[in-house]
Simulated assay, not measured.
Amino acid sequence: MAMIDKLSDPVILFALVLAFVLGFMMRGSGRGSLSPAPMNRDEIDAALKRVTISRWMDIDAEIAAGRKLAAIKLLREATGLGLKDSKEAVEARMAERRMTRH
């Protein structure tokens, strides 16, 4: 019962709400993890050149199996590119290799 009395104290309640709000603001909404900072064209090209042949084979296999999203995920993991840049790179590879969408 003593704990409930402490939590109903307006000062304690205000401090808890303030701590929650500040923690949420510091953490962000979680969207920062979707894409890193945008890269320029040269950085994107350099990142794509660092992808190993083995990884490209994995990406191509996902594309051939109709799993474009999995291919994008593999490319993002290999390069650190953002979602948009990875999607565009996978689609460019599909067009270059004349792979069709399933």
Rank of each mutant, 00 (worst) to 15 (best):
L16C: 08
K49H: 11
L69I: 10
R31Q: 13
I59Q: 07
E43Q: 15
G32F: 08
A71Q: 05
L18V: 11
I72F: 00
E43I: 00
M25V: 15
W56L: 09
A70D: 15
S35D: 13
D85H: 05
R27K: 14
E88T: 03
P38E: 13
A65M: 06
S86L: 07
A2Q: 12
A95V: 14
S86Q: 06
A65S: 12
S35E: 09
M94R: 04
A37I: 05
R41G: 00
D60K: 14
D5C: 00
F14K: 03
L34Q: 12
A70P: 05
E96S: 13
E91A: 10
G82I: 06
L69S: 12
M57V: 05
N40Q: 11
H102R: 09
A92E: 08
M26F: 11
R50I: 06
S33P: 00
N40A: 03
T100E: 13
R76M: 15
I4S: 07
A65G: 10
A95Y: 06
G32T: 02
E96L: 15
R50G: 12
F14Q: 02
E62T: 04
L16K: 03
E77S: 14
L75P: 03
M1P: 07
S33K: 11
I12R: 03
M94V: 03
G28T: 10
T52L: 04
S35C: 01
M99V: 07
V11I: 14
A95C: 04
S29I: 08
D85M: 00
K68M: 07
G82R: 08
R101Y: 12
L22I: 13
A19D: 04
R50C: 07
I12L: 13
A19T: 10
R101G: 05
E96Y: 14
H102D: 09
A61M: 08
H102W: 02
L13R: 14
D9V: 02
R67V: 05
A65C: 05
M3C: 00
S33Y: 09
L69P: 01
D9A: 04
L83M: 14
A95M: 12
A92S: 12
M3D: 09
S86F: 09
E96R: 15
S29V: 09
L75E: 06
L75S: 04
D60W: 06
L48C: 00
G32W: 09
F24K: 01
I44W: 01
K73Q: 14
R50A: 15
R101N: 08
A47F: 07
G82H: 09
A78Y: 07
A70H: 12
I53S: 11
S86N: 07
A65N: 11
